[in-house]
Design a protein around this nucleic acid. Structure first.
Ligand SMILES: [Zn+2]
Ligand SMILES: [Zn+2]
Ligand SMILES: [Zn+2]
Ligand SMILES: [Zn+2]
Lengths: 141, 141
DNA sequence: ATCTATATTGATAGTCATTCTCATTTGAGA
DNA sequence: TCTCAAATGAGAATGACTATCAATATAGAT
């Protein structure tokens, strides 16, 4: 249950935190901004403060429950940390986000960092393109 | 000359634009924020408005003269578009930025995008780690 | 179940990077 | 040199996010 997850993360089990965690788990879109989470909750009749959303997300990230990304849209995007690491490809027309994992790229990154004398700790890889899905094409022609 | 570059880009040759372009060309640090550019110019005795710096950088980018990056520091970083494409590795302790190009990664990206049905148009790859250079170690122990 | 000490919440004010507004100035062609 | 649209710069405005703080809720002790 979500309460367990919070406790294991060393966080008190509170109503706002449970609301956010539950939303993240039940949303079809895995990648959301703080504003979107706030809007979905309040539109769903929940009462919660925007500051609380930002705070909870920061704590969830520190606890390793979620990860954050900076796509070119500018806003920070959060997603539940479930399953293995992956990177992203974003449609520049309709905004759709797909995930991928590529062993070759991951390996090359480690080699590159080492060859430059860096101890690699993290990386951010995002591809941008047009997905041309039916919904995408309908959006703009 | 810089005037040529501006004219070729379809931009009027103005004093502020020349100042910014010249600074970008003569700085040892190739990657700078708008604030840094503004500060370096004004500290150098030049008179220029911060809004003008932001505007010029946006125009330079649209014209393909410079590229922008969003490292995890938050601020947007600009660099002169000279030479071939490259990606970046940033030291999370001292902020040093190194550039690299990896043919294997570039190729895999195209393959991944295609396999997901996307027409690839751009990508952002940034590695983060500790460089442990002498200056880096001096910074925090 | 009740109490208590402490952590959390949420409304709001503040911050910081970036963009907008608009009166004034400037560059490029006539 | 003249003309006038384009560009500039000072400051206001925006938008995402963070800090403040009084009110509230949680976890553990009684
Ligand atoms: Zn993802
Ligand atoms: Zn699309
Ligand atoms: Zn370093
Ligand atoms: Zn670079």
């Amino acid at each position: 249950m979500d309460s367990e997850e919070l406790r294991n993360a060393g966080l008190k089990v509170t109503t706002p935190r449970l609301k956010i965690l539950t939303l993240l788990e039940n949303s079809v879109e895995r990648h959301m901004t703080a504003e979107t989470i706030y809007r979905l909750l309040t539109e769903g009749g929940e009462v919660i403060g925007l500051a609380t959303v930002y705070r909870a997300l920061a704590q969830f990230e520190a606890a390793g429950l979620i990860t954050r990304h900076h796509f070119d849209s500018g806003q920070t995007v959060y997603e539940l940390e479930r399953g293995p690491h992956h990177d992203h490809i974003v449609c520049i027309r309709c905004g759709r986000v797909e995930e991928f994992y590529d062993k070759v790229i991951e390996e090359r990154q480690r080699e590159i960092a080492a060859s430059l004398g860096f101890v690699l700790s993290d990386h951010a890889l995002t591809l941008y393109g047009e997905c041309n899905s039916p919904e995408c094409l309908a959006r703009k022609g």
